[in-house]
């Protein structure tokens, strides 16, 4: 149709200038070719070492590992979200001491490696097994999964509290003042006016936090939890076959990419009224 319109008015356009081989184009094509080569090599390697016995023997292990990873991340994210509420409120509190306490908590858990936190809880508290037995908590701390869960919850609570506090602070003061001018109670204002606006700001950081947790959860493999990474380590130690790790890497990439796309969709959906 546009062709016909163009013909009728008989506009003589000069031909588009030829795309020249600039340095950028050369390197771009070279690197893309390299990626394609790596991708083909990767698929070829996995296909050539495809072994029905391997899949039959270890496939269920990967599936159970994936389930452990997802359940661990999901439960610690939810528990962390609950724990983050009082911490975020403390961070926003006008009381200097409560604010400092919340800040100290957040700083401590964000400033140290997750691996060190996991070790401190799993091995460090394991040293006090007799004391823990006497108060009846040993049953909890004996299990590596529980220790990983506790460490992840404490860790993600710090991150989520910071996200939430920052988001609530980002809502302009006028929103509070407008609501109080209308005579709305404080809690109602928070629930119906401040929080919906804050959560939109927090949406993206929350998505990043979920992805960071999925990636971070791989370290529980070191304290003998058989998550996806743990199973890959186990299979590698049995077979010395490198595809043990490659398959787990593929699964991690798939999970993260699916989550990223779902989150982008949710974000686009929830902020569609903001598009100008």
């Amino acid at each position: 149709m546009t062709d016909m319109a163009l013909n009728r008015t008989a506009v003589e356009r000069p031909p588009a200038p030829p795309r020249r081989w600039t340095a950028g184009r050369f390197w771009g094509n070279a690197v893309v070719a390299l990626w394609v080569l790596i991708g083909v090599g990767f698929v070829w390697y996995l296909a050539s070492s495809w072994n029905p016995e391997f899949v039959e023997k270890y496939g269920p292990r990967y599936w159970s590992g994936l389930k452990v990873t997802v359940s661990l991340v999901l439960s610690s994210l939810v528990a962390g979200a609950l724990l983050s509420l009082p911490i975020a409120l403390g961070r926003l509190s006008k009381n200097r001491y409560i604010g400092a306490l919340a800040y100290a908590y957040i700083y401590t858990f964000r400033g140290t490696p997750l691996l060190a936190q996991v070790f401190l809880i799993y091995y460090g508290l394991g040293q006090f097994s007799n004391e823990l037995k006497s108060i009846g908590l040993w049953g909890f701390f004996r299990d590596a999964w529980n220790c990983g869960f506790l460490a992840f919850t404490l860790n993600t609570a710090a991150y989520q509290a910071e996200i939430l506090a920052g988001a609530i602070k980002s809502v302009p003061k006028g929103q509070w003042e407008g609501a109080s001018a209308l005579g709305l109670p404080k809690l109602f204002t928070f629930r119906k006016i401040i929080l919906p606006q804050a959560l939109i700001v927090a949406l993206r950081p929350y998505g990043n936090e979920i992805i960071l947790m999925i990636k971070g959860s791989a370290i529980v493999a070191i304290i003998t939890v058989y998550d996806l990474m743990g199973q890959a380590r186990w299979v590698f130690s049995k077979t010395f076959d490198f595809q043990a790790y490659l398959w787990a890497a593929v699964f991690y990439l798939i999970v993260v990419e699916i989550l990223r796309n779902i989150w982008a969709w949710i974000e686009a959906r929830l902020t569609r009224h903001l598009i100008r």
């Binding site: 950028g24 390197w27 791989a218 991690y252 990419e257 990223r260």
Partner: peptide, 21 residues
């Protein structure tokens, strides 16, 4: 475009994999 594609593949892979992996 090819340079952009190459760069995006790079970040997708290394931001999606766990650091330990």
């Amino acid at each position: 475009p090819s340079l952009r594609l190459a760069g995006n593949i790079y970040t997708t892979i290394f931001r999606g994999l766990p650091e330990l992996m």
